[in-house]
Design a protein around this nucleic acid. Structure first.
Lengths: 161, 161
DNA sequence: GAGGAGTCGTTGCAGATGCAACCAGTTCTT
DNA sequence: AAGAACTGGTTGCATCTGCAACGACTCCTC
């Protein structure tokens, strides 16, 4: 009930705490993965995200726009990322047959090779970091909760352009 | 069992999926909050993080280093962030009595005021975005799982410098 | 108490990101 | 079928970030 010296009135709100944890868990995990993967393979984690998504897609190719949405980044951000990866030879841009505006990011042989050589390391890191904290059931729970948050936010507000 | 055209062998690993969801939920939420808060108040979300942490601390002040750790960012990143916030008049740097190397980031009256005026909006956004996706029990579950991930990663690997 | 190792915070620098503006191509309207 | 409205992707620009290197200070060791 203090007045001037207590601006922390509603600041222990469970939603604020949840969001804080989301940021902190994300950042800690990101930094740890980035550092390790960079040391052993010299590959940024973002590249893996693209490589994995392409590898999972039919024909190992995806439209720039949908790849940007999948990566939850802006199209301009994805343009630069694909630029770098194309310079690195792991993806290639291909014209889109049905829509002459469109471009497809395509996994190259070199990209498949890079993915094959780094994925085991990435999974081992992830197992070390996530598997060490949560058992498989809890991990599945976490994934489910996060998916629902993601889907709801996507449904409510539009993504960045 | 395909050979050349199936690089997606172990790519549906639950740990990869969990990490992907963490990134996507984080990014979607971050963008949505940022856009809205920027429109209504012109304040970056990162500022709120600092303001909230300071407001919750005794004397509304925190050492730069511990603030950086709390924010899960590098000390150099925090230096610049506090620079900007100090220019904006919402925090102030104070010398540390016990350690003459150290500095304390201190919440100013203006900072308290900014927090008071933006926190309700922030909480409303969060309620809209998180509360719309998860009920209170699930939110608490999510927070708990994320906290365990954060703590484990922190314990295993050192933070960035 | 002198010297070396370690910590605190800042700065130069390079890299990555988003927004706004833009051109090319598509689709809707009339 | 012509023009308006829209979508897909790239670019200029500003911002934010982390790492490495640095000076200031502290603490431990001898």
């Amino acid at each position: 009930m203090a007045c001037p010296p207590d601006p922390a009135e509603h600041l222990d709100d469970p939603r604020i705490e949840a969001y804080g944890m989301l940021i902190e868990a994300h950042n800690e995990l990101h930094h740890a993965l980035e550092r390790n993967l960079d040391v052993v393979a010299g590959v940024p984690v973002g590249w893996l995200g693209v490589l994995i998504r392409l590898a999972r897609s039919p024909e190992q190719r995806l439209r720039m726009t949908v790849l940007a949405r999948d990566m939850t980044m802006s199209t301009s951000g994805l343009t630069r990322l694909v630029d770098r990866m194309e310079s690195g030879g792991v993806v290639r841009r291909e014209a889109c047959a049905e829509d002459r505006r469109g471009l497809l990011a395509v996994l190259t042989d070199e990209g498949r090779q890079l993915l094959a050589s780094t994925a085991p390391c990435h999974i081992a890191d992830l197992d070390h970091l996530l598997g060490g904290a949560l058992d498989p059931d809890e991990l599945a729970q976490l994934t489910d909760l996060l998916r629902r948050v993601r889907d709801h936010v996507r449904a409510v507000g539009p993504p960045p352009g």
